[in-house]
Each structure stands twice: as structure tokens, then as C-alpha cells.
């Protein structure tokens, strides 16, 4: 992957520092100009913990100067995400039933419904490019949470992840299925290929997952995000597949969404009942963050949906 195009003087200095190999250069960075400027810089720093950039020295992942910048950006992001959340809902009885009910009760704009019925091929291609920022590293952020969980949810998350990563078969690895779909559509299947087009909401969506995955104290938010993501996936994936079929777009990309209809019908049950519920039971202090992570997933997807529907002149 190659370094992205900066979106302001701050991300310009961060990107230049990464390219230079000398982490002290980041000290010359001014304050971020805009939320996008900050988000792109944070995204670039986070990527050092995944597969990195071709032109960046891998050792910079843990350079104290860059970790300090990352921490400041993370604190800002976390505070913003928490300010949007209204707190743990009150419920009686079973956590799993309450979590499913909360997710089902959430009413946000749906990109999948628009793709199913009305989107043009160009709009679908634009959406898939934005989705590629996450789907090409699908399941990677929550993978960091595996060693941070107590026994029962750790085993359950590993079981879910084994399926996400193809059950030992690279050709079934979900991120790789998506890359195959992009290539079949004539799009660039390489990581980071479309990050320069990603709006703030998409960058924030990706940064939130890395924030939750890379900080052990936020393990509750990490698996709560996963649970809400999986619990809002099967239906929308079926609609995406139907939209791709309506437009006669590549079978390979339909196969990616078809796989998720079935896989995520399993994963939502695993995530809510066998990962989040046992985590909350074993470590009750994580419950608030489980709900916070779930809310953040739904809220950020609403923001992405509103961005694209507004851009395309569609009323949500």
C-alpha cells in the first residue's frame, strides 16, 4: 500500500514524516486544520499496525513520537464518539435479547436498500470503492481483541474469526473475496487504492474500529461494534446482492455479499450470545463499552449512508 494524499498541513507533515523515516519530523506538525485532516493522519498511523506502507519503515509503528501523536488523535476521536452516545439503555432480563432489540429498533438510512432498488452502476462502484477501505481488511481490527478477552468469549471470537479468515483457505478469506469482486468489476483490488476518495465518515468508521481493537481497555467496545455490525449485515448484504444482480454487475462481487448473508446470520448469534454476553458476565465493567461500541457502529454507518445519499441527491 502507498501513503495517502494529505488533507491539510497536519496530515501533510505526518505523511511526510512517515515517508522520511525520521519520526522526530512529526514535531513540526501544526494543529490539524479540519476533522478530515486529523482523521487521515490517524488512519495513516493506524495502518502501520496492519500491513503498513511500501515506502514506510516498519519500525515507525512504535516510534514514541508517532505513538504520542496517535494517542492525542485517539483521545480526540474517542471523546467525539462518546459525545454522540446517550449511554447504556435500561433493560430487564437477558443481555442478548436486549442487544438484538436495540439494534432492531435502530432506524437509520439504508444504502443497501438504495442499491437494491434504485442506484446506478456508477453509484454502486463509488460505494464499493468507499467500502474497500474496510472490506479489504475485514475482521482485522477486532482480531487484536482476541488475546484480550476472558476464556469463553476468546474461544468464541476465534471461532468467528476462523470463518472470517476462510477456515484455513485463502480463497475463502472474506477480505480476499472482496478483492476478487473489485478486480472482476475492473476496480483496483489493492489496499488503500481508494482511500484518497474516502469521505470523513468512512475514515472515522475505519478509525473507530482500529481505536477499539488496538486499545485493550476498549475490548468491550471492540466486540460490541462487531456484534452490531454482524447483526445488521445479513439483510443488507442480500439487498446489495440483489442490487448488483439488477445492474448485471460482476458475479464475484455478488458472491461476496451472498456469502455474508449466510455467514453473518451465524456470526450475529455468536457475537451477541457467545462473545458479548459472556464478556459482560465475566467482566461487568465492560458492559457500558459493549453498548457504546454497538451504538458507534450503527451511528457511523448512518453518517456514511447520509453522506452518499445526500451526494446522490436521494432523500434518506
Amino acid at each position: 500500500m502507498h501513503l495517502p494524499k494529505p488533507r491539510g498541513a497536519f496530515s501533510e507533515q505526518v505523511v511526510a514524516t512517515l515517508a522520511s523515516g525520521d519520526p522526530t519530523g512529526v514535531g513540526r506538525a501544526p494543529e490539524p486544520e479540519t476533522a478530515e485532516d486529523a482523521a487521515l493522519a490517524l488512519w495513516s498511523l493506524y495502518e502501520l499496525s496492519y500491513r503498513g506502507f511500501e515506502e514506510v519503515d516498519d519500525r515507525l509503528e512504535w516510534a514514541p513520537e508517532l505513538v504520542a501523536v496517535r494517542r492525542a488523535l485517539e483521545e480526540d476521536l474517542e471523546a467525539r464518539l462518546r459525545s454522540r452516545w446517550s449511554g447504556t439503555p435500561s433493560y430487564e432480563g437477558d443481555f442478548a435479547a436486549a442487544f438484538f432489540a436495540e439494534v432492531e429498533g435502530h432506524d437509520g438510512p439504508s444504502l443497501a436498500r438504495f442499491v437494491q432498488r434504485d442506484a446506478t452502476a456508477d453509484q454502486v462502484m463509488e460505494l464499493l470503492q468507499a467500502r474497500s477501505v474496510y472490506h479489504l481488511k475485514e475482521s482485522d481490527p477486532v482480531a487484536f481483541s482476541v488475546p484480550r478477552l476472558p476464556v469463553a468469549p476468546r474461544a468464541a471470537l476465534m471461532e468467528l474469526q476462523y470463518d472470517e479468515y476462510g477456515g484455513g483457505r485463502p480463497d475463502r478469506l472474506h477480505a480476499h473475496l472482496f478483492a476478487g469482486g473489485l478486480a472482476a468489476l475492473g476496480l483496483d483490488p489493492h489496499e488503500g487504492a481508494y482511500v484518497d476518495q474516502a469521505p470523513l465518515s468512512v475514515l472515522e468508521q475505519n478509525n473507530a474500529m482500529s481505536l477499539f481493537g488496538l486499545n485493550r481497555r476498549l475490548r468491550g467496545a471492540s466486540v460490541g461494534h462487531l456484534a452490531a455490525f454482524e447483526a445488521t449485515s445479513s439483510g443488507p448484504c442480500r439487498r446489495m446482492s440483489q442490487g448488483l444482480a439488477r445492474l448485471g454487475l460482476a458475479e464475484e462481487m455478488r458472491a461476496y455479499y451472498d456469502e455474508h448473508v449466510e455467514a453473518d446470520a451465524v456470526h450475529e448469534q455468536l457475537a451477541v450470545r457467545l462473545i458479548c454476553a459472556p464478556l459482560v458476565a465475566a467482566e461487568p465493567e465492560t458492559e457500558g463499552d459493549v453498548w457504546f461500541g454497538g451504538f458507534t457502529c450503527l451511528d457511523l454507518e448512518d453518517r456514511v449512508a447520509r453522506h452518499y445519499l445526500e451526494r446522490w441527491g436521494v432523500s434518506a
Binding site: 471461532e159 468467528l160 470463518d163 477456515g167 445479513s234 439483510g235 442480500r238 448473508v261 449466510e262 451465524v266
Partner: peptide, 26 residues
């Protein structure tokens, strides 16, 4: 079955029977 864990439809409305496709939610 093709996964570590499979979900078998119990509501009878799945379009991918015998597997669950989340249709019970509607």
C-alpha cells in the same frame, strides 16, 4: 455444513434453507 458453526433456520422463512439468512427478524 461448511463453517465452524452453522445456523439452521427455525422460522421456516429463510431463502437459503436449511441455513438461516436472518429473515426471522422481519
Amino acid at each position: 455444513t461448511t463453517r465452524p458453526v452453522s445456523a439452521v433456520c427455525r422460522c421456516g422463512r429463510s431463502a437459503t434453507k436449511p441455513w438461516c439468512d436472518g429473515t426471522h427478524k422481519v
